[in-house]
Amino acid sequence: MMFKFKHEALETNTGLLLVATMMAISIGGLVEIAPLFLIEDTTEKVEGVRPYTPLEQMGRDIYIREGCYTCHSQMVRPFRDEQLRYGHYSLAVESKYDHPFQWGSKRTGPDLARLGGKYSNEWHVQHLIAPRSVVPESVMPNYPWLMENRLDYADIGQRMRALRAVGVPYSINEEEYARNVKDFGPEMAAQLHIPNARESLLAQVRAGNYDGDPSFVSEMDALVAYLQVLGTMVDFSKIKPETLVKFR
């Protein structure tokens, strides 16, 4: 005898309704999420993408704390107008060490995916303290405390450990350190070594002089270091555009 489906059977049986609801919902996950783990060409095979240094990572955490993502996206889409204004479209591989990624879709302010190197450190400091002093038409709030707040980097090691647990290649022992030397070069590998995190952070503050005051490690140092690295890791002059087409 054929099983005849009756809607009433679902509506009058809570257990069956629960199972059927979960089946319906899981289709979304199966179609949208599962394939990303299977499709081989999702992330482009290009060189240069590395994890953030301890200082950049602290800056990223401040970026998230201050809610920059509510007005700024970090995703240049493959359209002509966006490429002309912001630069090369974003690649999936460029956010492979971002947890969580900052792609976003709300653009009250401009996209920041290719911000790095576009303005001087001094501009960023001035602009973050008082945006309208350099961009009169801006509606961005002032963030003067970034300059005054001492950067609390006591837990940078733990932050890096947490990221390491979700797959970011920060090194914790000699073996992983050696792997990073091979993958990212000796200078960068030293910065990605968790036991050295605080020393690397301080060294980058001293060398970079991001906020113009080398004697004081401010939150501004970290945030500007992060903003200056955005979108600069991949050298697009070495990549033929048709190569990237093949990853879609």
């Binding site: 493959p78 002509r80 490429q83 555009p241 048709e242 087409v245 990853f247 879609r248």
Partner: peptide, 27 residues
């Protein structure tokens, strides 16, 4: 269909990256 960096025509399944490449070339 778009032109690759060697100046040859290449054809690939439709996607936005190729479309952008072609638009930039046309412009």
């Amino acid at each position: 269909t778009y032109t690759n960096s060697q100046g040859q025509e290449e054809t690939w399944h439709w996607n936005t990256r190729a479309k952008l490449l072609r638009e930039m070339q046309e412009a």
